[in-house]
């Protein structure tokens, strides 16, 4: 049965768009795996940098705020572990958004030559980054063991944090991808946004030791802060606040879908000069 005549410019119906994305799952997997493989080839340490970079960051912050500057590590028992969880979870957000912002430009040739649901491009970028992040879970466990943190059953929940984070990352990557097609300068600004975000996500210090009760409410709006705190709870114990879970649930419910709808609205924009 031949297909019907259809407007070439109609954005596909949402259902067909989803089906198109699902039909490209082997594409996404293939590209993610071969991208990681080619990183391994082009740089001597290859994907090790994906781990080495955050480990070095943790060391730098630990030397500065744990040893040299007094007061930042206030109220934290195991500051190295505290930092390691914060840095690894936060970097996962940062890398996904930056990869999303660059993805359209990096895949220009593909986008110009073939017709397919463009959202697969930023989504594939997030899958690539997420695969590269898998070993960081092990680094967090290793840090916990080496710093003598007591074993808890909740350690098993840490991978789940990253799984949920993946869906949020898909949302932010889609938004970053479309934004960067409107403003090419966005890719330059993005690292600074994340630099700023580092301080309002409680990566370096325990927010509750510094913020008032009303300020804490503002922090709880920030999904990065909530994800970091939930990850810390799973490894270091303490109180699991309902506000974090509510915030994370609302973000997960809204962001990926809203981002996909907004990205799809700009379907014709991608791949142009």
């Amino acid at each position: 049965m031949p297909p019907v005549l259809r407007d070439a410019h109609d954005t596909q119906q949402l259902g067909r768009y989803f089906a198109g994305l699902w039909g490209r799952r082997s594409y996404a997997w293939y590209v993610a795996v071969s991208e990681l493989r080619s990183r391994q080839i082009t740089s001597r340490l290859g994907n090790v940098w994906h781990l080495l970079n955050p480990i070095l960051q943790v060391l730098v912050y630990w030397v500065i705020f744990g040893l040299l500057v007094d007061g930042v590590a206030r109220g934290v028992e195991n500051y190295v572990l505290f930092l390691a969880i914060g840095v690894f979870v936060y970097l996962d957000f940062q890398r996904a958004a930056i990869a999303g912002a660059n993805s359209i430009q990096n895949n220009k040739g593909l986008i110009r030559s073939l017709h397919f649901p463009r959202a697969i491009v930023p989504i594939t970028a997030v899958i690539t980054e997420s695969l590269a992040t898998v070993p960081s879970v092990l680094v967090v466990y290793a840090t916990a063991v080496l710093t003598g943190a007591p074993l808890r059953w909740t350690w098993l929940l840490l991978p789940l944090v990253f799984v949920f984070q993946f869906f949020l990352n898909v949302g932010s990557a889609l938004i970053a991808a479309r934004t960067s097609t409107h403003f090419s300068d966005f890719n330059q600004i993005l690292p600074f946004i994340f630099r700023l975000g580092l301080y309002v996500s409680g990566v370096l210090f325990a927010v509750e030791s510094f913020a008032s009760e009303s300020q804490l409410r503002l922090f709880e709006i920030n999904p990065a802060y909530c994800f970091i705190e939930i990850a810390r709870w799973s490894i270091m114990g303490g109180e699991l606040k309902a506000a974090w879970l509510v915030s994370v649930t609302l973000w997960l419910g809204a962001l990926p879908l809203v981002a996909l709808l907004w990205f799809r609205k700009g379907e014709e924009l991608y791949g142009r000069d």
Binding site: P2, P3, V4, L5, R6, D7, A8, H9, N107, G109, L110, R112, S113, L114, H115
Partner: peptide, 18 residues
Amino acid sequence: RVLVRGEARLLGVQAALK
């Protein structure tokens, strides 16, 4: 308007995908 039956694929000159 532009109506197309099925998929229309464009092939140009500078088409290395990656």
